Simulated scan of single mutants.
Amino acid sequence: MKTILLLAFAVLVSSTPVENRDKKLLAELIDELEREVKNFSNDTTEIFLEELEMNGCKGEFFCQAEQELKDKVSGRSGAKFEHFRTDKKLMRNLNEYNKRHMKTCKPADKDQEILIHEFLEKLLTCAKSAYRQPK
């Protein structure tokens, strides 16, 4: 009986840090995205990214978003793009979240593009939605 109780407790305790880590990653991601949405809100730079299917903001959405940002934004120079470098908090957290939730990720469909501001707003909406979901 003691063994069963210890095993049950171990399973309960071991699952809690993962949920807390996900919440922390998402909270930091939300903070970074809110800053970038404000940064690009009045921007006239026309940077287009593929419009992603939100589909309930499942894991693949975040994976495709990371790929789009890496491919089209993170290599750009200038202060406006500094936060999109792969060694910065926004991209690190997005990458870490994807490592925890996705094994593989199919590329985004290349049928419609949207401005970076709209792209970031959708990513922010999904991050907030994932943050609010109970685990």
Rank of each mutant, 00 (worst) to 15 (best):
E121N: 05
L25M: 08
E50P: 04
I30R: 10
D109K: 13
Q112R: 12
K23F: 09
T45A: 11
K128V: 01
L69D: 01
A27F: 07
T16Q: 12
F9M: 12
L26W: 07
E53H: 12
L29G: 06
A127Y: 03
S41T: 15
L7T: 06
T45G: 08
S129C: 10
P17F: 07
S14R: 01
Y131N: 13
P107K: 10
R35M: 10
N39P: 00
F62K: 04
T45Y: 05
E36G: 00
Y131D: 06
L120W: 00
S15F: 08
L120Q: 00
Q67E: 15
N93Q: 01
Q112I: 10
G75Q: 07
K70T: 15
A79C: 00
E50W: 15
E113G: 11
E28S: 15
F9W: 06
N42G: 06
N55M: 14
D111I: 09
S74F: 01
C57A: 03
I116L: 12
E53D: 15
A10N: 11
N39G: 05
K135V: 11
C63T: 07
K72V: 01
K128G: 04
E46H: 10
L29R: 05
N98A: 08
I4S: 05
D43V: 11
M91F: 04
T86K: 10
K70Y: 10
Q112L: 06
V11K: 02
C57E: 00
F9S: 05
G56Q: 09
S15I: 12
F48W: 09
V73K: 02
R100G: 09
E50Y: 15
T86S: 15
Y97S: 13
K103S: 13
L12P: 03
A10S: 09
K72E: 13
K122A: 04
S41I: 12
I47W: 05
M102T: 08
I30Y: 07
R85M: 08
T125E: 08
E68P: 03
L123H: 01
E82A: 14
K89W: 02
T125N: 02
K24P: 00
P107G: 08
F119A: 01
S15H: 01
L90D: 06
H117R: 13
E96K: 15
V13P: 03
L33T: 04
E46K: 15
S41A: 14
S15V: 09
L69A: 04
K89G: 06
L123M: 12
L26H: 03
C105L: 11
L6M: 09
E32L: 02
K70P: 00
K99T: 11
C126T: 08
E66K: 05
E96L: 14
